[in-house]
Amino acid sequence: MYALKKKGLRHATKREKRSWLFGILFILPSVAALACMVVYPLILTFLYSVNKVLLPNFDLEFVGASNFMKALGSSQFPTVLKNTLIWTFGSLFLRFVLGFICAMMMETGFRGKTVFRVLTLLPWVMPSIVASNLWRWIYNVDNGILNYVLKQINPSLAINWLGNPSTALVSVIMAYVWTGFPYIMLMLVAGLQGIPKEYTEAAQIDGANSVQVFWHVTLPQLKSFIMILTILEIISGFNSFDLIFTMTGGGPGVSTEILGLNIYRTAFQNYDFGTASAIGVILLLIVLVAFLFYAPSNKKKQA
């Protein structure tokens, strides 16, 4: 709209008055859905975080910051946090690497491209309840297919993947990467499509090789795309729990205990909705703060 104003088109003034309205109209369905479904849980979460919640009628007893202290002060918290960070960033990195390689390959032509495209989407299509049980079985020490194959090669390779504290987290991360990389690949392909061919062609004409083209042309164009995906996936990583819950339950010990699992247990096994909400509020605040940093830099780009 500002661009139009600059060019001084006469349509601009009429449009400006209506633009406000149109904007609101366009976002109305989504905001209505938000108002319906998001406001109430948000309010409740904030409310519960500073109260002790007594079931079954959700009676409240004000306790101030003690839920927050309980959440942050538990002896397990540092390990849980460490595991969550490894889980989130480890899987994110691997998924991006795999996703990128696949996305780039989709762009180039080679025989068997269509088959490849379909195959790489298979992990995403499998429901998570099946995928998590399937991977658990594959990793099974005594009658899983992975160790069976490894034993044929070299018996000492067939280790206790899910039962050994040092390998458990990595094993679950690999399963998570398997289920998640097609989705990243898909988003990246969509993003790559948005890069006009002229840019890459121009760079190639200038003599850049493929790596340089990738680094200096492709990546910068995808930057905002990648940022959005990264933020959303980090948030997911902090909240996800069903894969780990099925495969190891957070064990052995606390070696695969992550935040999402912790929150789930707090709410539905300990019935402590107050503390679970407190953790939710902490996550919200982190995201809000992160946005205070992200938004200004975004505004700069737009102007």
């Binding site: 633009s19 406000w20 946005f291």
Partner: peptide
């Protein structure tokens, strides 16, 4: 489209609030 092409009061907060549903843990 609305968020991208139009400016109106409350735009930034609304846009950020869409994210909240993802941030809030499922159990909440």
């Amino acid at each position: 489209y609305g968020f991208s092409r139009y400016r109106f009061p409350g735009r930034a907060p609304l846009l950020t609030s869409i994210l909240f549903i993802r941030v809030l843990p499922r159990v909440c």
